[in-house]
Computed example of a mutant assay.
Amino acid sequence: MYDTPPPCCTICRSGLYADELTYQACRPCTDRVDRQLRALAGSDGLYARLADSLHPGSGSGGPAVSGSRTAPLPIRLDPLSLAARGGVVTILQTWLIDWHEALAYQHPRWNGDLQQQLDQVVHRLRVLLPWAAERHGAFDEFARELGSLVRQCEAASGGERAPRRVPVQCGCGHVLRVTLDTAGVRCPACETSYGHSEALQLPLAERRAA
């Protein structure tokens, strides 16, 4: 008879505590998702800061570089793609629609400009976050996509540089790349999953292997 593996968080792969057993994600991962949602919203949030980063030289920590024979683009494409329709707001709205459909709720409504819509969708996602962490089948996918959006917004607005990825070696020999804020990682070669602390404890990969 095989032992049943202990339930673990679908995001960081850490074991769940007794009061978390009905949830898919542990409390620290759920709290991190909530913080990332809050970081996007508001007049001083990451999404609002994208507008200040649209012109060359803005949001990058220094003045625009001159002397090039080619005229610079009038706007920076990275923050534009995130700020425009189809970017951050649309992605979050798509997730909210999915959550509403899973709950048999009415289709959400969007009012105002994109900043106002961003604030609305973030508020609603936060309201439904406890349910999603417990019941939604793709909550881990939502958490990872949200984390990616936040990091892109931070990089595009000059808020933070993208975290450096460090090559580490799985027990099977495959090289994985992790960051200090890696929630968890799964080895594509042997399907072994590592939680946050386990991933950071893996040995550094040899330079030639990386």
Rank of each mutant, 00 (worst) to 15 (best):
Y47L: 13
L82Y: 06
Y47H: 12
P63Q: 05
V122L: 04
D31Y: 03
D113T: 03
G62H: 15
E101V: 02
H100R: 15
A132F: 00
A25W: 11
Q116A: 13
Y194A: 12
R38V: 07
F142D: 01
C26L: 09
T22P: 00
D113A: 06
V168Y: 03
G184K: 08
L125S: 03
L92F: 04
T182H: 06
L149N: 09
D31G: 02
G87W: 00
S60D: 07
A83N: 01
H196F: 03
H123T: 13
T94Q: 13
L40R: 07
Q93C: 06
A143T: 07
Q152V: 00
L180V: 07
R76G: 10
A84C: 11
C9W: 10
M1P: 05
E145G: 02
R124N: 12
D78F: 07
P28F: 14
G171H: 05
T90R: 11
A102P: 07
S148F: 05
Q120N: 03
L46K: 13
L146T: 05
S60R: 13
G159S: 13
W110T: 14
R27P: 00
A84R: 10
C12Q: 04
P56E: 02
A132T: 04
W131I: 11
I91E: 13
R165A: 15
I11C: 10
A25D: 05
R38M: 06
L149G: 08
P72N: 12
I75G: 04
D113L: 01
L202N: 06
R35M: 09
T10R: 13
Y105K: 10
D19T: 14
S58I: 00
G158N: 01
Q117W: 00
S68A: 11
R186W: 00
T30Q: 14
L96F: 15
R49S: 13
A51M: 08
A51D: 12
